[in-house]
Nucleic acid binder design. Structure first.
Lengths: 184, 184
DNA sequence: AGGCCCATGTAATCTGTTACATGATTCC
DNA sequence: GGAATCATGTAACAGATTACATGGGCCT
């Protein structure tokens, strides 16, 4: 029961369709949670049955019809309970780290390529986070914004997402260089 | 098929029992992968059937008997193939971030407590990583060690684990302060 | 006496991924 | 003409967690 709360939390700010939620949890975009669209639709169905969200049908002309979901009181209660519940630690679980651990088992050049690819992805994601942060902040400085701004949760989580990618980037560049240097 | 490669990679350096592997993947310890002991024993059984690892029984006097596993040629091949295969990006997926996103839904003081707890855990894990890094490095400087040292994979992954926890720590401290300040 | 460490597993359940399925509109 | 976007779902499978199950030795 974890995606469940990510959906409820996202619906705090704004009502949304399954499609929009799936976008928000797109691995390429999300700082705090990710999953496939399929899982979103499945969980939305469950949440609606449980009375935690309410969907209303919107008939559209040139687009498929859609259902917009909003948070119901029961969903808000569940979210409040969740926020105060015990939190499991989060951990890195990354194929790329396993590969670095085992880099002596194969030709290291292939691994160096992968590190460069990951670094490029990190740069891209940093740029995306910076754009989001700039949009939320507007003309305010960060300290002004976090003191009084709205949608502060989105900002704070995006900052974490950015620093995660920054560390990924630094590490990949360093490791690629270390491995390349060891090949004489 | 992901834990599978983490096990094979760990067995590159040293042979190990299921118990030792489970320790290595203990969420409290591991920089690169984590899982429950149950999963380790399950996967070891599969790997042995697949001929990728070889287990030998060691009868003990004052301890339960144990089985020590080592990498078989087929396992080494599989690992080499894995290192050069495409890598999926890794992403944060953290209950605590979801809670921060939803912090307005509940009493923020409870959340601030949780942020402090997470910060304490991060400090502890940083100390553990520092100890491991110091052990591996010995009297050498980091640049000396990564240029010529052995077990370099363990060192490089531990560095990533450390930086992850350092960012966790910085972020938790900052967010706790931001949220506390907003409660006037 | 109680708790942790060593040491191994099975079974049930929950979560998450991949494949399958459809189809119009808009942009290049 | 082809790709991307909007929009929603089902089904099969793989991966991960939790509960159950056992038991001696060591330390305080």
């Amino acid at each position: 029961m974890a995606l469940r709360h990510a959906i409820l939390a996202t619906l705090l700010d704004r009502e949304a369709t399954g499609y929009q939620l799936a976008k928000a949890f797109d691995p390429e975009v999300s700082a705090y949670w990710h999953c496939t669209p399929q899982q979103v639709y499945l969980e939305l169905a469950r949440l609606e049955v449980a009375g935690m969200i309410i969907g209303r049908q919107v008939v559209q002309q040139r687009r498929p019809n859609k259902r917009i979901f909003s948070l119901a009181p029961a969903g808000r209660d569940e979210l409040a309970r969740f926020v105060l519940s015990e939190t499991k630690p989060s951990f890195i679980r990354d194929d790329l780290l396993v590969k670095v651990l085992a880099f002596e088992a194969a030709d290291p050049r292939g691994l160096v390529d992968q590190l460069h690819q990951r670094a490029a992805l990190a740069r891209q994601r940093i740029a995306e986070f910076d754009e989001l942060l700039g949009q939320l902040r507007g003309s305010r400085s960060e300290s002004e914004y976090v003191a009084a701004g709205e949608q502060i949760g989105r900002y704070l989580t995006a900052v974490r997402g950015r620093s995660f990618e920054q560390e990924n980037l630094n590490w990949c560049v360093w490791v690629a260089q270390v491995i390349a240097a060891r090949q004489t």
